[in-house]
Simulated assay, not measured.
Amino acid sequence: MPKPFRFGVVAPLMTDLPTWRDQARRIADSGYSTLLVPDFPLTQPAPAPLLATAAALTDLRVGTWVYASPFRPAWLTAWEAHSLSLLTDGRFEMGIGTGRPGIDDELRAKGEPGVPPGERLARIRETVSALRDFDGPDRHTPVAMAVVGPQARALAAEVADTVTFALGDQTRADVERLTREFRTDTDIELALGIPVVGDTVAPHMAPPDTDTAALHAMDALTALPDDPSAAAEEIQRRREELGFSYFIFGAHVADRFAPIVAELAVS
Rank of each mutant, 00 (worst) to 15 (best):
D105E: 13
V197D: 03
D29R: 13
A160M: 09
T15P: 09
D16V: 13
Y32W: 04
Q44M: 13
R100E: 14
L178M: 13
D16A: 12
L215G: 00
T19V: 09
P47C: 08
K3Q: 15
L155T: 14
E106F: 10
P225N: 05
T164G: 15
E119S: 07
E112N: 11
T162V: 15
M145G: 09
D161L: 13
L50I: 10
T186E: 15
P228Y: 01
A173F: 10
A11W: 11
F247M: 02
L50M: 14
T53Y: 15
A258N: 03
Y246E: 02
L121I: 15
P49Y: 14
R172E: 15
D219L: 06
V148I: 11
R239L: 08
M205D: 06
G31K: 03
L167S: 05
D138F: 12
E181A: 13
L84C: 00
S83G: 09
W65D: 09
R180C: 12
P116H: 05
V163D: 05
P208I: 04
P142L: 09
V62E: 01
I96V: 10
P2E: 10
R123Q: 06
Y246K: 01
R125P: 03
D135F: 08
D187E: 14
P203K: 00
P207N: 04
Q151H: 14
A156N: 05
P41Q: 11
P207F: 04
A28D: 10
T77E: 08
A166G: 14
V266K: 14
H140A: 15
G99P: 00
A157S: 09
A146E: 08
L50E: 13
A254C: 05
R123T: 07
A258I: 02
L155Q: 08
E158S: 02
G193E: 03
H216Q: 10
I27M: 02
L178T: 11
T127M: 04
A258Y: 03
W20S: 07
V253M: 00
F165W: 15
V66Q: 07
R72V: 06
A206R: 01
D211Y: 00
F247V: 01
P4I: 07
E126R: 02
E106N: 07
A160N: 08
S30G: 11
K3W: 13
E240A: 13
G243K: 04
F257T: 00
V10A: 07
V196W: 05
A48W: 14
R180P: 11
D209I: 01
L167T: 05
